[in-house]
Simulated assay, not measured.
Amino acid sequence: MDKLIFGNTELRVIDHGGQPCLTLSEVAIALYGKGGDQSDAPFDSAVRQVQKLYMRHSDEFTKTMTGMVKMQTRGGEQEVRVFSLRGAHLLGMFARTERAKQFRRAVLDVLDEQVRQGETLSAEFQRTLLEYSGKQTLASLCGKGLRQWQGQKPPLEAKLDHLASQMQQSLPLH
Rank of each mutant, 00 (worst) to 15 (best):
Q136N: 12
A123M: 15
S133T: 15
Q51N: 12
D112F: 07
G143Y: 07
V82Q: 04
K52E: 13
E10S: 11
H89L: 00
S84H: 04
G143Q: 07
A139I: 00
M93P: 03
M71E: 05
T9D: 14
T23P: 02
T66Q: 04
L141C: 07
K34S: 11
E113G: 09
R105F: 14
K135Q: 15
F94W: 08
G7F: 07
E131Y: 02
Y32C: 04
K34A: 10
A30R: 05
K34Q: 14
W149Y: 03
K159M: 12
G67F: 02
Q150S: 13
E124P: 05
A28K: 06
L171R: 13
A41H: 08
S58C: 11
E124C: 02
Y32H: 08
F43L: 00
A164E: 12
R56D: 14
A28I: 10
L138E: 09
P154Y: 03
V82P: 00
G92R: 04
E77S: 09
Q166V: 07
T128Y: 00
T73H: 04
Q169Y: 10
S25V: 10
R96F: 08
A30N: 06
D109T: 00
S84K: 00
P154M: 00
Q117P: 08
S45G: 09
G87W: 01
H174Q: 14
V107K: 03
M93Q: 01
I29C: 08
P155E: 09
G75M: 07
M71I: 05
G7D: 13
M71V: 02
M55E: 07
G7K: 14
I14T: 10
L90I: 03
T97A: 04
Q168N: 11
L171W: 12
Q169R: 13
Q166T: 06
V50N: 00
G36Y: 03
L31G: 06
E119M: 05
Q169P: 09
K3W: 08
Q152H: 12
R127S: 08
Q102A: 14
R116S: 10
A100F: 06
P154R: 01
Q38R: 11
D40P: 04
E10R: 10
N8M: 06
E119P: 02
L173C: 13
G134N: 15
N8I: 09
R56E: 15
A123C: 12
K34L: 07
Q19W: 01
L121R: 01
M65R: 02
S133F: 10
G145F: 12
T97P: 02
M167V: 09
S39H: 14
F6V: 03
F61S: 02
A95W: 03
T73V: 02
V80Y: 01
S122M: 15
L163I: 01
K52L: 12
A164K: 11
T137M: 15
G35Q: 12
G76E: 04
I5T: 10
I5H: 09
S39P: 08
S165A: 15
R48T: 09
S25M: 13
M65Q: 06
R147L: 14
D40C: 10
E113W: 08
L121P: 03
E113Q: 11
L130M: 11
H174G: 13
Q148Y: 05
Q114T: 07
H89Y: 05
T97S: 08
L22R: 02
T64A: 03
R81L: 00
L160A: 02
S39I: 13
S58Q: 11
Q166H: 04
R104S: 00
V115R: 13
S133K: 13
F103Y: 07
R74G: 14
L11N: 00
G7Y: 06
